[in-house]
Design a protein around this nucleic acid. Sequence first.
DNA 1: GCGACAG
DNA 2: ATCTTGTCGC
Length: 223
Amino acid sequence: MSINLQQLKQTQLSLANQVRLSDDFNEPINFIGGTDVGFEDGGNITRAAIVVLSYPEFSVVEYHVARLKTEFPYIPGYLSFREYPALLAAWQQIKQKPDLLLVDGQGFAHPRRLGIASHLGLLLDMPTIGVAKKRLCGQYETLPKQAGNVTPLLDKQQQIGWVLQSKNNCNPLFISAGHRVSQASALKWVNLCLRGYRLPEPTRWADAIASNKSLFKKFLNEK
DNA sequence: GCGACAG
DNA sequence: ATCTTGTCGC
C-alpha cells in the first residue's frame, strides 16, 4: 500500500477551507489542554499525550497517554497524518474537555495552511493553537534574544503566524492559529501560559508526561 | 536543478 | 521524533 501525496495534498486544501480563524471559544477560560507526541521502538509505536490544566492555576486536572502502531511516515508538510490517530485515541479518554487546546506543531503556518493544530482542531471541532519549536515555512526578521520579543511570520505577502522569544537566550517558538482562534488570540494565550520556561505550561506538561520526564515523575510522587 | 523541510 | 554525557552560559 503506497502513499499518494497528491491525494493527501487535495485533502489538506479541502480541509483548509473549513478552518476558521476567528475567535470561537468559551470565556473565561477555565481549562487549557496541551498535546505532545513521541515514538517508541524505533518509530513503530506512536505515543500521544494530552493533558488538561486548570486556568489560571495550571494544576494538572487530567491526562491520558495513547499508544498506537505507527501507520504513516514522517513527511514534512504531512505530519498530521502520522500523528493524529494516536491523538484522537488519547482525546477519547479525556472527560474534562478543555476550552482551548495547544498543539505541538504548526497551525496555519503551513504550506497549505493546514498544520497539525488546524487539522486536529477540525477533527475535534475544538479551538486550537499551534506551538512549534521550529519553522516549517515562512520568513521572519531576526529578533532580540530578550524574552517577550515578537515578530510576524510571513509567507507570500501574508502573515501566517508569529515568532515569539518566550524565554531569554532560547530559540524562539513559532505560534500560529489552529482552528476557531484568531492569530491575535493565539499569541495572547500562549503568552498567558508562559511561566518562566520556553514552553507554555500545557505543552510543557504534555511533553513531560509523554516522555516521563522529571517534572512528571515529581508530580506523581507528590500525589 | 538546488536547497529547505513541524515531529 | 530518537540515540545520549558532559558542559558552557544565563
